[in-house]
Amino acid sequence: MEAQLVAQFRRSQPHIAMTSFVTASGKRADLYYTTDSDVVVVEAKSLTTHGKVREAVAQLLDYAASTPEPATRLMALFPERPTRTASS
């Protein structure tokens, strides 16, 4: 499911060259790209549970410390919008 979210997002932004990177600890960000104004790190999750939202935020913060250029935007992809009261 996460790979599908990443592929769908890539197709929706055909004018942006997207790649990935690996941190010093061997973790791979799902997507990484730069625009004229932003350096963006993207993490995809297959579920919208509270735990998965927290996991995405934690991973994005970890990846942001290792980006090839300083990150200006962190983005998470989910199959649907998480609710405010999502369960774990």
Rank of each mutant, 00 (worst) to 15 (best):
M1V: 06
E2F: 13
E2L: 08
A3I: 01
A3Y: 06
Q4T: 13
Q4L: 15
L5A: 06
L5K: 02
V6G: 04
V6Q: 07
A7W: 01
Q8N: 11
Q8K: 14
F9S: 03
F9L: 07
R10W: 02
R10S: 11
R10M: 15
R11S: 11
S12R: 13
S12F: 11
Q13A: 07
P14K: 03
P14Q: 06
P14L: 10
H15F: 07
H15R: 10
I16G: 07
A17W: 06
T19V: 00
S20I: 00
F21D: 00
F21V: 02
V22A: 11
T23V: 10
A24S: 12
S25Y: 02
G26K: 00
G26P: 01
G26V: 00
K27Q: 07
R28C: 03
R28M: 03
R28F: 00
A29K: 04
D30E: 13
L31H: 09
Y32K: 00
Y33E: 10
T34M: 14
T34G: 10
T35G: 03
T35Y: 07
T35E: 06
D36Q: 13
S37I: 03
S37N: 14
D38R: 13
D38A: 14
D38L: 03
V40M: 10
V40G: 07
V40W: 04
V42L: 11
V42W: 13
E43D: 03
E43G: 07
A44W: 12
K45W: 14
K45Q: 12
S46V: 01
S46H: 10
S46G: 15
T48C: 06
T48N: 05
T48H: 05
T49S: 15
T49D: 13
G51C: 10
G51F: 12
K52Q: 14
E55N: 08
A56K: 01
A56R: 00
V57F: 09
A58H: 09
Q59S: 09
Q59A: 09
Q59V: 01
Q59T: 00
Q59L: 03
L60A: 08
L60I: 07
L60T: 10
L61I: 03
L61N: 13
Y63T: 03
Y63L: 01
A64I: 02
S66N: 15
T67Y: 11
P68E: 02
P68Q: 03
P68I: 00
P68A: 10
E69I: 04
E69A: 15
P70N: 10
A71Q: 06
T72V: 07
R73Y: 04
R73L: 13
L74N: 10
L74M: 15
L74F: 11
M75R: 15
A76S: 12
A76P: 02
L77N: 07
F78R: 02
F78H: 07
P79S: 08
E80I: 01
P82V: 01
P82S: 10
P82D: 04
T83P: 05
T83N: 13
R84T: 12
T85D: 14
T85I: 11
T85W: 13
A86Y: 04
S87D: 12
S87W: 05
S87M: 08
S87C: 06
S88L: 09
S88V: 04
